[in-house]
Nucleic acid binder design. Structure first.
Lengths: 225, 225
DNA sequence: ATCCATATTTAGTCTAACCTAAATCCCCGT
DNA sequence: ACGGGGATTTAGGTTAGACTAAATATGGAT
């Protein structure tokens, strides 16, 4: 029978979607970690998600899950809510970009389609959230996102930050302090092998900034010729 | 032990608060009707609310409940969320006034104190929601509200609508079509005894409008000398 | 090819919040 | 003063979604 979309189910689908974007399938453990619950609980839920009609995920024992078309549609709807909300909180309510995630995580399950439509309108049908993540459009199509992490650049290359893949407030505050935000341009001045540390000039700054891979791995860029 | 504030508990406290504003104590049945659940379920919950430390309600078997100071504080906090949200949806997002209630009912349990502060700021620390209901201030004090229903006015009296006590979208649409909204002035032209029907001139209108008691009971006014 | 660490599942519990059916209480009218 | 009807409570059951402990499967290293 058709599943009732509880908040928990929506969270599972959204999380499976995110994990799936990086790896082929979402493993029980990866889900458990992302959702901050035990693997045993995850198994129970994904079995339920696979048993609905239509199924929301394809589940094979010991091999994790993949979203079905139906599951993905719901996941994208939630992601759209989430990212629209993030931008709304930032632009209209003046939230700092490190605080938007937690608030959006709770609101995303609760807002109506009308709310979604109203904020999309106020924001002018935006394509990206404050972290640079693409916002699924009304038809749930997704603007393409850069897959080029900053740590792959080498001296002499110039790039514009496209998105910052993190929800950790402390990390985001640190980046903001360094001036590392979407649309900022930078030039790689130096690359040190083995430890992967980069020296970059950020925006209009005078001197270079040293960045370790823990940071540069999370920043995706568009290369500027 | 200190109660965790679930959505259900918040809804109970808010509803008890509303019933209490009209009657002395909130009866099990009145709560069940307002919450659209069975009286048996209500009994279970109010026993729980009375058993927390500190207790959120005072409960005497067969005699309903009253909020304690602690319970009232939480109720007022939720009412503040609700009414700020209603105004926010109406003013900032352009919701029609009949749609704000349902949306606010879901959002009120989910927004953070920061969200509350941000919308209060955007709205300029407002004192009344779109229906004219008073918004509890930050210290949870409540601006006074008119207790004078329109149906008590008599020919010749002039009044300004202060608030409309209903959450029913159809009813609110009807009122809007008639031009009956907070801050609108009207004059009573005629009163017909026994059936309580009033004829009033609304705002700048030329001809009078006939209103039955089902309508005039729900409209509270300030008399204009 | 086997073994073991890690990942996953099963089985059995728990809590919150609802439900129905049946018992009981309260109070109003005679 | 009492009987009865409406209000309320009790008893017992359901569902969603989490948990722990124990059993089992998988796959990489030997």
């Amino acid at each position: 029978m058709r599943a009732t979309l509880t908040h928990a189910i929506e969270d599972y689908l959204k999380t499976i979607y995110k994990i799936q974007s990086a790896h082929e399938r979402a493993s029980t453990n990866a889900l458990a970690e992302a959702l901050e619950i035990t693997p045993a609980s995850v198994t129970g839920m994904i079995q339920k998600l696979a048993a609905t009609t239509p199924p929301l995920v394809v589940y094979e024992k010991h091999r994790g899950v993949r979203l079905t078309a139906e599951g993905e549609e719901i996941a994208l709807e939630i992601v759209r809510h989430h990212r629209l909300l993030e931008l709304f909180l930032h632009q209209i309510l003046g939230y700092s970009w490190d605080k938007v995630h937690a608030e959006a995580d709770r609101l995303e399950h609760v807002i109506s389609e009308e709310f979604e439509a109203k904020i999309a309108e106020v924001l002018g049908d935006p394509s990206h959230d404050p972290h640079g993540d693409p916002i699924p459009q009304l038809d749930l199509s997704l603007p393409p996102a850069s897959r080029k992490p900053l740590n792959e650049l080498r001296p002499g290359q110039r790039a514009a930050i496209q998105r910052v893949h993190s929800a950790d407030p402390e990390f985001l505050c640190h980046l903001e302090a360094l001036g590392l935000m979407p649309n900022i341009e930078l030039v790689v001045l130096d690359h040190s092998p083995f430890d992967g540390v980069l020296t970059v000039r950020i925006g209009e700054n005078e001197q270079g900034q040293v960045l370790g891979p823990r940071i540069t791995e999370q920043i995706f860029v568009d290369i500027v010729p």
